[in-house]
Design a binder for these strands. Structure first.
Lengths: 146, 146
DNA sequence: TAAGATTATATCGTGTGCGATGTAAATGTA
DNA sequence: TACATTTACATCGCACACGATATAATCTTA
């Protein structure tokens, strides 16, 4: 790298990552608005649709989020009637998060989101192979940093 | 993609992007702590070190941020004594942001950050070629979405 | 088994992001 | 030149992220 250019925005890796993440999240907004949820709330629901009834910390490990972020978020999801939070009887420290009937049913309405994002130019400029490669690099990076 | 797996976290592109961005930002934290700045504040400084004296909107275009985010952030940078905000005399709508003496000097202390991040495993698992490829895909995506 | 360590969750404070709205300066137009 | 429109910035409200701290339950171990 040429002298003195290390601090240039273009040469950072973190900056385009930060921008791309925000822009792609923003692309979800109109679709998630229809479900009256935010993007992080959508991620929690994805995790629960995959595997219902998880303690808060398990959700956190899945989403790389701590309870200081999750607890208030889960309370909001509970207020919306999408999940329930129940203190575990076996281990009173744990709070088990599970989908409500409504939260479970929301899955049907969310089913179309991935394809809509894919089609919306979220990644249409990249080939399938590039995408897989891209995803693999992201996960490699997460493994390194996580 | 197999039926019913479109909603799985692994198959999303946005999710690993979101996680990787947060984790990489977090990797900067200890380095930026020494300079008493946050990651978005660091980005503003990078932009100013590249090109000083920019109106708020120009900074926003560079960083893909709006004034609702930038104005408070710039005020915090001003409180720290790193930048100055001055109403333009030619166009009284504009506020020109420029580095203070201290803000300018901070560049020296920040110079080591990129290499420290690179070395810290931020991307050590990826070859130089993979990295360039990765960065290119990110920018391609940003162009699509921005 | 009593005391210390660990675990699971919650709370607090600060700093973003961002949609929505407000306001003053500048520009376009009839 | 009046007046509508646009531009540049600021403000407000809400929802994250996250470091730091608190608290109760469980586990360890002497």
């Amino acid at each position: 790298m040429a002298t003195g250019t290390a601090l240039h925005l273009e040469n950072q890796l973190c900056f385009p990552l930060y921008v791309a993440s925000r822009l792609l999240t923003k692309a979800y907004a109109p679709l998630l608005d229809e479900l009256d949820i935010t993007y992080p709330q959508y991620l929690v629901l994805l995790a629960l649709w995959e595997s219902d009834r998880q303690p808060v910390t398990a959700l956190g490990q899945r989403l790389y989020l701590d309870t200081n972020t999750l607890t208030p978020l889960l309370k909001r999801l509970e207020r919306k009637g999408l999940v329930r939070r129940e203190r575990s009887t076996e281990d009173e420290r744990k709070v088990i998060v599970r989908l409500s009937e409504t939260g479970d049913q929301l899955r049907q309405r969310a089913a179309c989101i991935p394809e809509k994002i894919t089609g919306a130019g979220g990644k249409s400029a990249l080939s399938r192979r590039q995408l897989d490669n891209f995803r693999r690099m992201l996960w490699q990076m997460i493994e390194q940093l996580g």
